[in-house]
Nucleic acid binder design. Structure first.
Lengths: 163, 163
DNA sequence: CACGAGATTGAGAATCAATCTCAGTTTCGA
DNA sequence: TCGAAACTGAGATTGATTCTCAATCTCGTG
């Protein structure tokens, strides 16, 4: 909210640094081309903003950042674009218990779960192979074929426990 | 939707079995009395309907059943009553990925997690002490103090895999 | 048993996130 | 350059849940 993307005082020059998300952007171009979609300025701004951010962004947070760059971009377009990004496997949607969909970059990332601080809303990611194995065991035991799972631990992070 | 509670062809005889929910109802009376709330006919109907059902009921499903007994009871009252039941620790709210809050009876039940069939929407409960332990380990490792967690495995149940 | 303060109720309005509609705009291959 | 088809923004709509409020009900007290 108070966070603002420091607009790089572009003076026409576009330094073109090898952004870490360039691979994602390429993949998106391909995805878009492959199915007859179209590349648009709005999508570029949204995708760019999304990949230059980190963490688990809600649509609202993303919209705010996006509108700091182009105030005319509407919420519907952000929703639509994030859906495309998700379909393309470049972002993944998360539904924590605050009723808002949050997105995180997914470029070749390994599956992981989350620790969520209910006080400061910090989100920590973790992976635990052993837990995954046990989950598979449980599923197998019930004849279930699991396609995805969700493991979320809610509580107080280190910093929020004293207070 | 097409599912209907098979009315047990009651023929007048009501064996009066020591309902498993009577303890819950007593606890609720106490809870209500303790904080100056009031017992009402609507609440009785809702609570009764809830405890005579099994599984993970959505508010909508519960409302339908409730209105079969008293068509004048409104949705708001069902929402309000389930909130009380939850606060009293007699029901617990679950938020699976279908955007509806579902409630299950909680009377002295042990914590458990869920396997959810994305095809027939069957929900299977399970407990796994080992997973809980590992979760605690992960939390500890991050200095987190976990207050609750959510583990849901989505996929196809045994019956839905062939089809 | 009647009273009455305060809790409860139902209906509809209000919220909130997310989706849909639609008329005007933009993209991109021919 | 053209035009079919995809996009876009604004505002309407949906769906779940909560809120508002006037009318009603509950329950301890006299």
């Amino acid at each position: 909210m108070t966070q603002r993307v420091s607009s790089p005082s572009s003076r026409g020059r576009k330094a073109e640094p090898p952004s870490p998300s360039s691979a994602a952007r390429e993949r998106l171009s391909r995805w878009i081309a492959e199915r007859g979609l179209k590349a648009t300025r709005q999508r570029d701004v949204i995708v760019d903003t999304f990949f230059s951010s980190s963490g688990h962004l809600s649509v609202d947070e993303l919209l705010t950042k996006v509108q700091a760059r182009d105030e005319n971009i509407g919420a519907a377009t952000v929703y639509r674009t994030m859906k495309i990004l998700t379909d393309a496997g470049l972002a993944s949607a998360r539904h924590f218990d605050d009723g808002q969909t949050r997105y995180e970059a997914a470029m070749g990332r390994h599956h992981h779960d989350h620790l969520i601080c209910t006080s400061c809303h910090q989100i920590i990611e973790f992976e635990n192979e052993r837990i995954e194995e046990l989950q598979d065991m449980v599923a197998r035991h019930h004849g279930f074929q699991v396609t995805r799972h969700k493991l979320e631990l809610y509580g107080l992070c280190k910093d929020c426990q004293g207070r």
